[in-house]
C-alpha cells in the first residue's frame, strides 16, 4: 500500500528532487512561485531543526555516553571505558531478566491487543444501533490516566479486593495477583491490553470500512462460509492495518510498560523479585536512582537495536501484498 513503497521508487524520487533543486536556485530570482516555495520550505525546515536538536542529537550522544564511565552527579571528566558497560550489563542477572520480561510484555501484550482489537472492531462493524455508544465505552480506557487506572486495579486486585471476593464466593482460593512473582506480570499485561483495546478498535474499524462490500458479495456467490470470508477476505485486506498496529503497538508497549509497572508493581519498581521489571524501568533506575548514565545509556542502545530489529522483522514478515 501507500506507505510501503519499493526502494527503487524512492531513489527515483530523490534524484528528481536533486534536479529540481539546482534548477530551483537558478530560477529563484524574479520568480514569485519559487519564492513562495522557499518560504514554505523554510517553514517546514523549522520542525526539522527542532527534531534534530531534541531527538537525533541526544540519541547520537547516547552512543557516546554508553562507552564512558559516566556518573550523573559528577562534574569531572567522564573516562572512556570501551565496551565495559555492555559487558557489565550482559553479566547482570537483573538486566537479562528485564529483557526477558520485556519480550513477554511485547509478545503477549501486542498479540492480545491485536486480537481483542479485531474482535471488538468486527462486532462493532456488524451492529447498526448504539454504535457511537459502544465506541465511546471501548475508547474511554484509552483516554483515561494510566496512573489512575493502575491504582484502581491495585485496589480491585488486592488480597481482600473485589475480585478475590468473587473468587472466594465461587469456591476458588484467593489469589495474590500483584503480590505473586508468577502472576504479577500477566496482571499488568492484562491491564495494558484492556487500556489499549480502544485505540486498536479505531484502527481496525477504519481498516474494515476500507474493504469493499463487493468482495464479500462475490465470496457469498462463491458459497464461502463466514470463517472463510474472514480468513480469505478480511484478514488479507486488513494486513496493512495489522502491520501498522503491530509496529506501533510494540513501540508503545515498550514505552508504556514504564508507567504501568511503576504504578502497579507492589514496590513501585518492578517487583516482586523483579518479575515485572521491564527494560525501560531498569534504564530509569540505572540512570536516576543509581546515577550511572554510562550503564543506562548502554542499556538504551541495546533497547534501540532491539526495537530496530523487531520493527524490521515485523515489516518483513508481516507485510504481504494482496490484490483482488
Amino acid at each position: 500500500m501507500e506507505q510501503f513503497k519499493s526502494p527503487q521508487n524512492q531513489n527515483n524520487k530523490t534524484n528528481l528532487a536533486k534536479k529540481k533543486k539546482t534548477s530551483l536556485l537558478h530560477k529563484f530570482r524574479g520568480n514569485l512561485k519559487y519564492q513562495k516555495y522557499l518560504f514554505v520550505y523554510t517553514c517546514l525546515l523549522l520542525p526539522i531543526i527542532f527534531y534534530l536538536g531534541i531527538r537525533i542529537l541526544p540519541t547520537l550522544f547516547t552512543f557516546n555516553v554508553g562507552f564512558r564511565d559516566w556518573n550523573l552527579l559528577s562534574t569531572d571528566i567522564q573516562p572512556f571505558v570501551g565496551i565495559e558497560n555492555y559487558v557489565t550489563l550482559f553479566q547482570d542477572e537483573i538486566f537479562i531478566k528485564s529483557i526477558f520480561n520485556t519480550l513477554i510484555y511485547i509478545i503477549l501484550g501486542v498479540s492480545g491487543q491485536l486480537l481483542f482489537g479485531i474482535i471488538v472492531a468486527l462486532l462493532l462493524h456488524k451492529i447498526n444501533r448504539f454504535v457511537g455508544f459502544f465506541r465511546v465505552i471501548y475508547f474511554i480506557p484509552y483516554v483515561t490516566s494510566i496512573v489512575a487506572i493502575s491504582w484502581v486495579f491495585q485496589w480491585i486486585l488486592m488480597g481482600n479486593g473485589i475480585i478475590n471476593d468473587v473468587l472466594v464466593n465461587l469456591g476458588f482460593p484467593a489469589q495474590p495477583f500483584l503480590n505473586s512473582p508468577d502472576q504479577a506480570i500477566y496482571v499488568i499485561i492484562a491491564a495494558m491490553i484492556w487500556q489499549s483495546i480502544g485505540f486498536q478498535m479505531v484502527l481496525f474499524l477504519a481498516g474494515l470500512e476500507n474493504i469493499p462490500e463487493m468482495l464479500y458479495e462475490a465470496a457469498d456467490i462463491d458459497g464461502a462460509t463466514g470463517w472463510q470470508k474472514f480468513w480469505h477476505v478480511t484478514v488479507p485486506l486488513l494486513n496493512p492495518t495489522i502491520v501498522f498496529s503491530a509496529v506501533i503497538g510494540t513501540i508503545t508497549f515498550i514505552q508504556v510498560s514504564f508507567t504501568q509497572v511503576i504504578n502497579m508493581s507492589m514496590d513501585g519498581s518492578g517487583g516482586p523479585l523483579n518479575s515485572t521489571l521491564s527494560v525501560v524501568v531498569y534504564i530509569y533506575q540505572l540512570a536516576f536512582k543509581q546515577f550511572d548514565m554510562g550503564l543506562a545509556s548502554a542499556a538504551t542502545v541495546i533497547l534501540f537495536l532491539f526495537i530496530l530489529a523487531l520493527t524490521i522483522f515485523q515489516m518483513k514478515v508481516l507485510t504481504k501484498k494482496f490484490d483482488y
Binding site: 503480590n179 505473586s180 512473582p181 517487583g271 516482586p272 523479585l273
Partner: peptide
C-alpha cells in the same frame, strides 16, 4: 532486603 523477604515469603 525486600527481595530477601519476598524470596522467603513467595518462593
Amino acid at each position: 532486603v525486600i527481595d530477601a523477604a519476598n524470596r522467603v515469603l513467595m518462593e
